[in-house]
Amino acid sequence: HYVEVNGKKIQATSAEEAEKIAKKFAKIYNATVLDLGNYYKVT
């Protein structure tokens, strides 16, 4: 599981952790979290 933010991949140990990381970055960048199955993308 990982999160992609601005083209950078951030490794996460679980889907739950990946979701938390994605939501945190989405809040910082006022962005949207896309759940793409095996990873989250912040756009």
Rank of each mutant, 00 (worst) to 15 (best):
D35Q: 15
V33I: 12
K9E: 05
G37H: 05
K9R: 14
T43R: 07
V42E: 03
T43D: 09
Y39K: 03
N38M: 11
H1N: 07
Y40G: 03
N30F: 08
E4H: 05
H1M: 11
A18K: 01
L36Y: 13
K23M: 13
T43H: 10
E16M: 10
F25A: 02
S14F: 03
K41I: 15
S14K: 02
N30C: 11
A22K: 01
A12P: 01
V33T: 03
K27V: 11
V42Y: 03
T43Q: 11
I28S: 06
D35R: 14
K27G: 07
H1F: 15
E4W: 11
A22N: 00
N30S: 08
D35G: 05
Y2P: 01
N38E: 09
K20R: 14
Y29L: 12
I21G: 00
V5N: 01
I21H: 01
Y39R: 04
T43P: 04
L36R: 06
G37P: 02
L34F: 07
L36F: 14
T13P: 10
N38H: 13
A12F: 10
E16N: 08
V3M: 02
A18W: 04
S14V: 02
H1T: 08
V33L: 07
T13L: 11
A31Q: 05
A31I: 06
G7N: 05
A12L: 07
A12I: 04
G37S: 05
L34R: 07
A26C: 06
Q11P: 13
V3L: 05
K8L: 13
N30I: 04
K24N: 10
K23Q: 13
V3Y: 03
E4K: 04
E16Q: 11
S14W: 07
N38W: 12
K9N: 06
A22Y: 04
T43M: 13
A18S: 03
K27C: 13
A26T: 03
N6S: 06
I21P: 00
I28W: 14
T32H: 10
D35Y: 15
S14G: 05
A15P: 09
N6V: 05
E17Y: 06
V5T: 02
N6F: 15
I21M: 11
H1V: 10
V5D: 00
A26I: 06
G37L: 06
G37K: 04
K8T: 11
I10S: 01
S14C: 07
A15Y: 08
E4C: 15
E19Q: 12
A31N: 02
I21R: 01
V42K: 03
T13E: 12
Y2I: 07
K9Y: 11
T13M: 11
Y39N: 06
G7R: 04
F25N: 00
A15H: 14
F25G: 00
K27N: 08
V5A: 03
L34H: 08
T13A: 14
V5H: 04
V3S: 00
I28D: 06
V33Y: 10
G7Y: 05
I10G: 01
K27W: 13
N38V: 09
G7M: 04
H1A: 08
V3A: 05
Y39T: 07
E17M: 10
I28A: 09
V33S: 01
L34S: 06
A12E: 01
G7W: 05
A26V: 06
V5L: 09
L36N: 06
A22V: 04
K23P: 00
I21C: 11
Y39M: 07
K23V: 09
T32V: 13
V3E: 00
Y29K: 05
A22C: 08
V33E: 01
E16D: 09
N30P: 00
G7H: 05
Y29A: 04
V33N: 01
T32Q: 13
L36Q: 06
Y40H: 04
T32E: 11
E4M: 13
N38Q: 10
I10T: 02
A31Y: 08
E17F: 07
Y40M: 05
T13V: 12
K41C: 12
E4P: 01
E17A: 10
Q11N: 12
A12Q: 02
K8R: 14
K8Q: 11
V42G: 02
N6C: 15
G37Y: 07
Q11S: 12
E19C: 15
Y2E: 01
N6R: 10
V3W: 03
K8N: 08
T13K: 14
Y40Q: 02
A15L: 14
V3G: 00
A26S: 06
K8A: 08
F25V: 05
N6I: 05
K24M: 15
E19I: 12
K27M: 13
S14Y: 02
E19F: 15
D35E: 09
N6Y: 14
N30Q: 09
K27L: 14
A15M: 15
V5W: 12
Y40D: 02
K20Y: 12
V42W: 05
I28Q: 10
Y29W: 10
E17Q: 11
K20E: 11
L36A: 05
E17K: 06
K8V: 13
V33P: 03
K9V: 13
N30W: 08
A15R: 15
L36M: 15
K24E: 11
A15G: 07
V3R: 01
F25K: 00
Y39P: 00
L34I: 14
V42N: 03
T32P: 06
G37I: 07
A15I: 13
Q11V: 13
I10E: 01
K9I: 15
T13Y: 11
G37T: 04
D35A: 12
Y40F: 13
V42M: 04
Y29I: 05
A18Y: 03
A15S: 10
N6D: 07
Y2G: 03
A12T: 12
H1I: 12
A15F: 08
V42L: 08
I10V: 07
K41N: 04
G37Q: 06
V5S: 00
K20A: 13
E4S: 06
A22L: 04
Y2D: 01
A18H: 00
T32G: 06
V3Q: 00
E19W: 15
E4F: 10
E16W: 11
I28V: 09
E19V: 09
I21N: 01
A18L: 03
